[in-house]
Write a protein that binds this DNA or RNA. Structure first.
Lengths: 363, 363
DNA sequence: CCACTCTTGTCAACCGGTTGCCAAAAATTG
DNA sequence: CAATTTTTGGCAACCGGTTGACAAGAGTGG
């Protein structure tokens, strides 16, 4: 007799009287187990003696109903322990109260703080964060982005690997904010590397270094170019020699592999594209008998988790990654509320964190 | 004349003829910008010349329609670049193709691999992962879980901080899988610490150690008790003395603080609740002039990211965290497909990873 | 060739909210 | 107190799929 999918609202309130004879035949339980599958605005309407649409207005359009009915409805909602069904809401409105975040690699600690910053800020404003990973592949990234885009209100791309045009295309569909890369016409949050870098170079120069090497990151990374520009400029200013070395991959292993090139370059100070490279490089150099920082100074980038586990602890240019996540979410939610996006890239400050891996050169 | 929310399907196919005069007044763009808001099964039905319900069946009920119409419909869908609207699907069915993962702390590296394992496995089976964080607070955790539960098909709790009854309550609503804790009646994935621990203790005994200290983690953590039990049993077996020391918090800082107690205990070998404690402890002991491992051996737990950044690199009992994530998702999806959950906790193997921080005691 | 299954497509109701339009009720004004 | 404006609540259509019931069409056997 029952035709299938109905919620069972028979047992609200402790009054479990005679369920079998009255309601059971017409109300099979719905979502799996548990008979409590939540109340709807129709239940509230019945209890409050008003129309469902009035309930809807009372609950989502402040001021549209009189204070009196508002109260009645809110009480009824509370009594029934009502929770909106996000899907039912999303269907007609398109609003999902959800934002997507795509990172290149979930296990890359660079992203941890971004994720946390975004999650915290989103939660605070009642948005849910959906996380996806591109496994460093531009294609996967585009796929993931497309898939996410249909279920979220907006998207945050952290250090995206896909090209600018793809990002603009996404951005034409729904609001998109980019972290760690600058793209015309798309709101961006980008750490301003120059402050941190010039602090680092100045400090190295002051410690007697005259030749510096920059170990670059992956070619698709927009940031690696920026950082090299910054290093080059700062070195010119401080009259240091600067060479750029390429790494095979931006990991501890990549750092180990580039150690030989570093030695051959004759540089006594190294700035690397990221902390992982710095750590690998330091391990390999120490294993070969070099003393850090007496013979060579090493400066990383990002101040990732674990940068202070090493001996000596790593000197590094800190990017405020948590803040990047927070800012990106804030911009996104502002845009969603109809505000304009900032027309220039939002820049956040970097700073040098001096630890043990950099210092005076002992000739 | 237009009454509001309609998708603009006027411009399918490159034929952009005369939009203004025909469609513009009746078809305001819907979801923000971009006129492409996606095709529906109604569009497909029209194009294929069948009923929408047939389209629905062709696309989701394999075998329900004839091969011929199936093909026609699939072609039409491809031509229109159709994508199901997840909300429209979720509304009547309750299926969301989404699973929730709650972790205590997003920045705690213990969870990184769990997250990645879960994300990867979920993606492979077309499920989206939604991540939430409890900030180590049982209350926040319950709230987050409740909120998530209404929008996901199932939930994974990694090292939950809430009590057993809350978890059982959630589990009565929707499928729940727990990682790193064992609860009767709820499917669990738990690393079997005994193998790793006995390897560790045996190795320490073989290196001349006779007194061992275990540095415990937070009291709410079910795991800390398990690990202590394992250590105690293994020490009895190997005839080592074992004492349990408490830490203030399971972090690097907590490790530093417990150094004094470790020294006073007279133990020459330490096993800590997690790697962070081990790292902090090692830093503090080395700062005080102790040589690791010559004077004291340190063994951590989990093999987190960064455990090999230290000098010496950290010896640790590795839990296969990625596998935990994978297994948990697999179990959850199996349950969602109607299979039975395993009635015993699924156990995954731990193993000792010997690095430099443990070794022979040089008296 | 007809009665009887089995397959396949259509109809219509439904999931749970949202919102434009309208009319009744209340408040304001002359 | 009547006329007018403003509130406030109700009606009904709609978002885009899903699914039970049913009937027309295809296939089968006697």
């Amino acid at each position: 007799m029952a035709t299938g999918l109905f919620c069972c609202h028979a047992v609200y309130d402790g009054a479990v009287t005679d369920v079998t004879s009255t309601g059971a035949a017409t109300a099979p339980a719905k979502r799996g187990r548990g008979e409590k599958s939540s109340a709807t605005i129709y239940d509230i309407a019945k209890l409050a003696g008003v129309n469902p649409s009035t309930v809807s207005r009372a609950l989502s359009k402040p001021g549209r109903v009189s204070a009196k009915t508002q109260k009645i409805i809110e009480d009824a909602a509370a009594e029934l322990n009502y929770q909106v069904n996000p899907f039912a809401r999303a269907l007609p409105t398109g609003r999902t109260q959800t934002i997507g975040l795509i990172v290149a690699d979930i296990t890359n600690p660079t992203f941890f703080d971004i994720i946390r910053g975004a999650e915290t800020t989103g939660s605070a404003r009642d948005y849910t964060l959906v996380l996806a990973e591109s496994a460093e592949s531009p294609e996967t990234e585009v796929t993931a982005a497309r898939r996410l885009l249909s279920t979220v209100d907006g998207l945050i791309l952290a250090s995206p690997r896909m090209d600018d045009d793809h990002i603009r295309a996404l951005s034409a569909d729904k609001p998109v904010v980019v972290i760690n890369r600058q793209i015309d016409g798309v709101p961006c949050v980008v750490p301003d590397v120059n402050k941190g870098i010039s602090e680092a170079v100045r400090s190295l120069a002051a410690n007697g270094h005259t030749n510096l090497a920059y170990v670059a990151g992956p070619a698709q990374s927009w940031m690696t170019g920026r950082r090299w520009e910054g290093v080059k400029a700062a070195c010119e200013w401080s009259k240091l020699g600067a060479v750029r070395l390429e790494s095979s991959k931006p990991t501890v292993d990549g750092g180990r592999q580039v150690a030989r090139d570093v030695l051959e370059s004759g540089a006594t100070a190294v700035i690397t594209y990221n902390d992982l490279l710095a750590i690998g490089l330091m391990q390999e150099l120490q294993a070969g008998g070099m003393r850090v920082p007496d013979q060579i100074s090493i400066v990383g980038f990002d101040d990732i988790f674990g940068a202070d586990f090493t001996t000596p602890a790593l000197t590094t240019v800190r990017s405020p990654l948590g803040e990047c996540g927070t800012r990106a979410v804030t911009i996104l939610l502002d845009v969603l509320q109809g505000h304009d996006a900032p027309d220039e890239a939002v820049s956040v400050e970097t700073e040098l964190v001096v630890r043990g891996s950099s210092g005076r050169l002992l000739a």
